[in-house]
Every structure is written in structure tokens, then in C-alpha cells.
Design a protein around this nucleic acid. Structure first.
Lengths: 146, 146
DNA sequence: ATGAGTGCAAACCGTTTGCAATCGG
DNA sequence: CCGATTGCAAACGGTTTGCACTCAT
């Protein structure tokens, strides 16, 4: 994993922010997450590390971390507004509908597609977000077994 | 413009929905819009055609129209949840970061990419969500002009 | 005529803000 | 120690729901 806890913690310290228990917890959660999380999800998971982590703190911390490019907001198809670590480089993931297992797709091969889009629309493409859902190998087997 | 008022109105009637003043107004607004509109914006513009158009009605009408594939929700970078008319079939949007103009990409060419993903991960791909952001031709010109 | 559709008011839920207490450097 | 940070409670804004009235068919 290219981004470890200390590197992110340093990023906060460098910018004069304190490294408090709630913030440690939130970082832990985001490091462990395999998909973008809503503030409420971050709070729930964070309470494992910091029992009385408040939702307000999650919002304020995300705000700080977003300004520092530690996290980035992700727009999901359903409820919108999830947060994921903004890892350098660029990856997409495939999420299993059944068991929610996640695989990262390293090396984003979307370039050709985006080039075509740029040509066809006249837009200068600056960013994209892709989320793929499917059934993982295990759940496909489980399906057949029934 | 391929989609005119009557074609969309028919789509409602075909499915047993009534064509009321508020719904006419909302269709007019969406046909005239050059970018996705929030429910509140749709209400404001719609009151030109239907003076006492209520916000609640906008929400409920959008719900109906979304089910009929007349409109499509668009996830914007800022507040999220705008609505635009949807052309038939599966489409993605490119949204201009600056002025929020939207272009639909007809004919989704992502098949090859998804095939590769399926092979590499062993997942059976069932769906995907793609959001592309960029600068539209106008805003690119505006940039250079500065 | 009659049920779908409407507007209003109130409930609801995620997010933001004000403030006193607390914690980290 | 001192200010940044926190949690709580309350405010806030967008969305949804309950209900009685109205309109399109």
C-alpha cells in the first residue's frame, strides 16, 4: 500500500493541524475501506477506534482532509457524497453486488474511450469517476450451486 | 432537437399518466434547459407556465418521468442531483466544471473495457456508473481569452 | 364520476453552526 | 498553558409524506 497511516498523519501535521484521536480513527477507517464511505458510515466504523466519535467531527475532519487532498469526495449513483482517500494515481474498483468484495483495477485503460469522448463532444476532459458492479467468482459459483 | 414536446407527452399518456398543467410546465422547462436543473430551479422556471406550481409536484413528477426514462438524474460536482431530459438507451454525461453544461454521450463504448475488467478480475459485470467532468468548448475559449 | 394528481403543512434526514468543555503540542 | 478541536443541541435546507381538494379523462 503506497499510502500508509504515517504519511497521511504527517500531511496533517505539516499544515499545522493536530493529530487527535478522532482524526486517527477516521484515517484508520478510510485506510481500511475498500469503497467510498458516507460520513455516517465513517462515524460508525470509526467508533471502533474512538468510542465517542461524533458525526459533526467526521464532517469537520473530512473538510480539513479534503482541503489537504487527503480525501476526495466521490459521487455515487444512489445517495451521492461518499469519501475515499485520494490516492496518488488512479484506480477504479469493481464491487460485488452480493458480498461486497472489492477488486481494484490497476492501470486505468479508459484513455481511448475518453479520447473519443473528447473528440465527439469538444470537451477537454479533466476527470472521471467510474464504479462497476458485478458478481465475484465466489458468488457466481454460489448462484450455480442453487 | 430529436425530442419534442409531443413525443414526451405521449410517453406519459402511453403509461396511463395524465397530462396536467404542472407536468406540461415541467416538460417545457426541461426542453428549454441547456443544463441539468435542480428541482427548485425547475419550479422557479416552471411558474412561468403554471403560476402555482409547487415544489412537491416537481419532485413527484420527476419521479414519474425518471421511471419512464423521460428524465435522467445527473450527479453534479457541487450540490448533486440535477435533472436533464434523457435520450433513449444507456448514456453517460460529460459535465462542464465551469458552466455545468452537459452533453450526453450516445452509444456507450465501454464494452471492450468492461470485457477486459471481467477477464482480469473474474467478476461477472452487471452494471456501471460513469461520470466525466471537463471543460466545454465555450469555457475553454473563455480560458484562453484571459 | 372517479381516481390520479395537486398544494399545503408538517415530518424527516443529512448537514451546518453556536458554544462550553477538552485535549494536544 | 493556550488555542485548536471536540461533542452536544439547536438551526438549517432539501426531500418526503399525510391529507383534503381539484382536475383530466
Amino acid at each position: 500500500m503506497a499510502t500508509d497511516f504515517e504519511a497521511l498523519a504527517d500531511r496533517l501535521r505539516e499544515h499545522g493541524h493536530k493529530l487527535t484521536q478522532p482524526r486517527r480513527a477516521i484515517l484508520q477507517v478510510l485506510l481500511a475501506a475498500s469503497k467510498p464511505l458516507s460520513p455516517a458510515e465513517i462515524q460508525a466504523r470509526g467508533q471502533v477506534f474512538c468510542a465517542d466519535l461524533g458525526l459533526v467531527t467526521v464532517y469537520r475532519t473530512l473538510e480539513v482532509m479534503e482541503a489537504l487532498d487527503v480525501v476526495r469526495p466521490v459521487h455515487l449513483a444512489d445517495g451521492c457524497h461518499g469519501y475515499a482517500l485520494s490516492s496518488p494515481g488512479h484506480t477504479h474498483h469493481v464491487v460485488c453486488e452480493r458480498c461486497h468484495a472489492v477488486v481494484e483495477i490497476v492501470g486505468c485503460d479508459l484513455g481511448d474511450f475518453l479520447d473519443r469522448v473528447a473528440q465527439r463532444t469538444g470537451y477537454a476532459i479533466t476527470g472521471h469517476w467510474l464504479e462497476i458492479s458485478g458478481l465475484c467468482a465466489d458468488c457466481q459459483r454460489a448462484d450455480k450451486a442453487v
